[in-house]
Amino acid sequence: MKADNPLAEVFERNSNYWEHKKVLLCGQIPSLQLLNSLIKTEKAYVITDNYPIAQGMSAMMGIKLGNSDFEVASKRHVSVIFSDYGDERIKGHLEAVDTIVLFLNKTKSLSQKILHCLMPYINPQVQILLMGANAIGGKSGDSLVKDVAQVFKVDTARKCTVFAANLNEGAQFKDSKALSDVKFGGLTLKQNHGLFSQGELDRGTHLLLNAMHRDLSGMDKVADAKELEDLSNADLKSLPTPKDHAAHYVLDLGCGSGIIGLSLAARGYKNVICSDISATALNCTAANAKLNGLDLKVLASDMLPKADDLERASINVPGGRFNIIATNPPFHQGINRTTAQTINMIAQAKESLTSDGVLYLVGNTALHYEEPLNEAFDNVEIIAATTKFTVFKAWNN
């Protein structure tokens, strides 16, 4: 079967490095189809931070993956592990391997962090293959290991590059540089490599937070962002809240480090669920909740969670419907820009909201989310806007 992705094809071209061996695949896994190739291995592990990849591969194995921040699916000699690479629970599911295949991420610091986190599982004789599309730095992939290994370029094809590395004696991979904390409304949030807007609160989310919290406080409507009060240094707990707000069910969709959900939890919302496709995001959000003394639940989910996803994770949300969904949705998949997932989410959001539920969404102004929002909802209001970002509030009668 011909590979469905250039990088997957390059992986197949270099089967002599992993066939009939114990192999670990990690990084930005390019295709579900790689699972079929692992039949040729003696033992194979796939560690991925990406829930759709883990979920898809597990389904191909006939296993339904759970929705926590750490999940394992195993069949015969193949194991798929959905996890943050720094999660110590990996230890119980991984043995020494002959070959590590690292599919490079577009963020070099994340690839560096993965190697550092895997160091406890790497034996001195392991061979490391670095595979990446040239568009995300594949040509310079050797820079990750050249200080601690003998590195050789072994393939260039389909605008991809492959390096093979043999570790020097006593080699140790350095961790990525620590990121700055993010602060908002009395909260302090640790950050992690691989998350959106690393080490800072991006302007879109900042605008959403100010507009949403103002709206929830019943303040006068202000569309001009210049007139919005900046709540960065405010005490969120002191803001007025809607009646019966504590009983509301809240979804922070695509939570990242958890700032949206945690800001609502700080205001007294008791049923906050933070979802993301990234195990790193879920792990980071849970850690930030503990750091700030707040209670919330995390859920692995590809966009809007279904009722059975919530039930399987033992999260009680009546009918799977939320009173509030708040999101700064992604519009990139790898290096490609796409709004298809967000537009699909908007079309389905009504089914995940209570009859009086509200969707708060911020997006790049140039993406024109007002069009699909107006098609899906009875009421759409712009509650803050700049030349670059627009915050929408959408609800049905």
Rank of each mutant, 00 (worst) to 15 (best):
V317P: 08
Y51R: 05
E42N: 12
K91P: 05
D224V: 04
A307F: 12
Y249M: 11
L296W: 05
S232C: 03
P372D: 02
Q33H: 13
D356Y: 02
P124V: 08
G66Q: 02
H248I: 00
K64A: 14
Y121A: 06
F70D: 05
N379M: 10
I47E: 01
A234W: 09
A223R: 10
I315T: 03
P318I: 13
A59P: 00
L35I: 15
L264N: 13
P329M: 00
S180C: 08
E370K: 06
F152G: 01
S217A: 15
S180K: 15
Q348M: 04
K139S: 06
V362A: 09
S15Q: 14
N14R: 07
H116G: 01
R312Q: 15
P240L: 04
D244V: 00
D276A: 02
N336L: 04
G256T: 03
V154R: 11
N134Q: 06
A44Y: 03
G357E: 10
V298T: 15
T354K: 07
A73Q: 01
D98E: 14
H20A: 14
A247N: 11
N168S: 09
R337D: 01
Q55A: 01
G363P: 03
S314E: 15
P120S: 03
D378W: 09
T342Y: 00
A171D: 01
S238E: 14
Q127G: 13
N5W: 12
V391S: 07
N67Q: 07
N192L: 05
C117F: 04
M61A: 10
H193Q: 03
E169N: 07
I128F: 00
I114E: 04
A54K: 03
L187K: 05
G92D: 15
T41K: 01
T41F: 01
I335V: 11
N379T: 14
N50G: 06
V272S: 14
L231W: 03
S79R: 08
G27Q: 14
S176M: 08
V126H: 10
S37R: 15
H93A: 08
Q55M: 00
N123V: 15
T327W: 03
N134Y: 01
N168M: 11
E95W: 00
L353G: 09
G137M: 08
L296R: 03
E370T: 02
V222A: 10
Y269A: 09
F392A: 10
L251E: 11
L251M: 07
D224Y: 00
E229C: 05
P30A: 13
T342K: 00
Y369G: 01
L209D: 05
P372R: 01
C160T: 02
A135P: 00
R76C: 00
